[in-house]
């Protein structure tokens, strides 16, 4: 064996892994990108053009709206929760149980989560009926739970715990000396937050919010189980495009829509990485 060949042998050990990921991760991803530029077996921009269709744009906008709303609500409430936890004892039961619960709840989504809210606030949900019987209030209304508002609420359920998980380390990184130094230099509580804690935490907060945005934007199962009619958001429009042969006169629209999603997620995740790089330099 020549030296060059011998040096290649160790790399051969990676062939099964790389082969597997090529088939089940890379080819699918690449085929989404390529497929977006194909219509009726030939290269075409008609699917990309269809992305400019009013229906698609409105759906994309609603998706962005839903993701942004649930991300902002989740980020604010999650940050408050993280702060409530971090101001407790670092080795306390409260902190341990909240972080464990958040680890679990951040993964909680999909059909079961949708059903949990149907059992709570659906037409005959437990809370809905209690509202009707006890308070005489109709919480169900005209079925808001199954619209964008409902999705926002339901998404918040996994967004808050995710925020706690990703934001807690940044809060932990805040040193008590900074607060005390600011205090002894004459800063009021408000000034401390305005000049020290705020600027220090802002990048991490925004970064976490972006992550929550991507999380909501990519979510499909919860919405699919909750919304059975119509396609108010992009993932559901992809479902529609996948299950019906032709949508908006295109047979490959699902690919273009998926590409649309990839672009949004990549943009958001890039911003996230840039922001995190900034804080990780400070909070060592």
């Amino acid at each position: 064996m020549s030296r060059g060949v011998r040096r290649l042998v160790p790399v051969l050990g990676l062939v099964p892994f790389l082969g597997y990921l090529t088939i089940f991760l890379l080819i699918p991803t690449v085929s989404v990108v390529v497929g977006a530029f194909v219509e009726k077996d030939r290269a075409s921009l008609s699917n990309i053009r269809a992305l400019g269709d009013e229906v698609v744009l409105r759906t994309l906008w609603r998706s962005i709206e839903l993701s942004a709303e649930s991300a902002i609500i989740g980020a604010v409430l999650g940050a408050l929760l993280a702060y409530a936890v971090v101001t407790g004892r670092p080795d306390g039961t409260l902190r341990r149980s909240v972080t464990s619960a958040c680890g679990v709840l951040a993964q909680f989504g999909g059909v079961t989560l949708a059903f949990a809210f149907i059992a709570t606030l659906g037409f005959s949900g437990v809370v809905t009926e209690a509202g009707r019987d006890v308070l005489g209030v109709d919480l169900f209304g005209s079925g808001w739970l199954f619209g964008l508002k409902g999705l926002t609420l339901v998404y918040t359920y996994f967004q808050i715990p995710l925020m706690v998980i990703v934001f807690l380390p940044s809060l932990d990184g805040m040193r008590s000396q900074w607060r005390e130094a600011a205090e002894s230099l004459g800063a009021s509580t408000w000034q401390f937050w305005r000049y020290v804690a705020g600027p220090l935490l802002l990048p991490a907060f925004l970064g976490s919010t972006l992550l929550l945005f991507a999380n909501a934007f990519a979510a499909y199962a919860t919405a699919a189980a909750l919304v059975s009619q119509g396609s108010p958001i992009l993932p559901l429009l992809i479902r529609n495009a996948l299950t019906s042969e032709i949508v908006l006169g295109q047979s490959h629209l699902a690919f273009a829509l998926a590409l649309d999603m990839i672009v949004v997620v990549v943009v958001v995740m890039t911003m996230y990485a840039l922001l995190l790089r900034r804080t990780s330099r400070w909070l060592r």
Partner: peptide, 20 residues
């Protein structure tokens, strides 16, 4: 490669997996 699936939504992956 291992962390890549985090940034590819399942709904996107499914579009590409159909062919596979």
């Amino acid at each position: 490669l291992c962390l890549l699936p985090l940034t590819i939504p399942a709904i996107v992956l499914v579009v590409g997996l159909k062919g596979v």
